[in-house]
């Protein structure tokens, strides 16, 4: 991995690395489409695999295409903080959906 940097302080990602990343992204797209046609018997497993592969692809795009791998701590804090908020939002919404007990009230 090259450590070439620039006078502005930005990191230069070599063409070769970008080609490797795009190849991986296209292969992962093929895998996730293929896996979506399989029936494991549990829909939850399909959801988990599709989202796991999507997350790997999102990491590849952000780390290399968006240069996040070479960014400073404050940028990482912004992104991780917003992802934590996103997990709270989706996590609490889903736990409410699955765990809520509707009281039976007789008038």
């Amino acid at each position: 991995m090259s450590t070439e940097t620039h006078e502005l302080g930005g990191h230069i990602v070599p063409y070769k690395d970008l080609v490797l990343v795009v190849t991986a992204l296209v292969i992962l797209t093929g895998i996730t489409v293929f896996v979506s046609t399989l029936d494991f018997g549990y829909a939850a497993l399909n959801i988990f695999i599709a989202m796991a592969i999507a997350s790997v692809k999102a990491c590849l795009v952000s780390l290399w295409f968006m240069h996040l791998k070479f960014e400073d701590v404050i940028t990482w804090i912004f992104i991780i903080f917003s992802l934590v908020l996103l997990c709270l939002l989706i996590g609490f919404s889903l736990s409410d959906e699955f765990l809520r007990i509707t009281p039976k009230v007789n008038f």
Partner: peptide
């Protein structure tokens, strides 16, 4: 825009 689409594709087209 690309990253958002990666998730939309998974959620709308793939998840059965």
């Amino acid at each position: 825009v690309d990253v958002i689409w990666i998730y939309l594709f998974g959620l709308l087209y793939l998840v059965a």
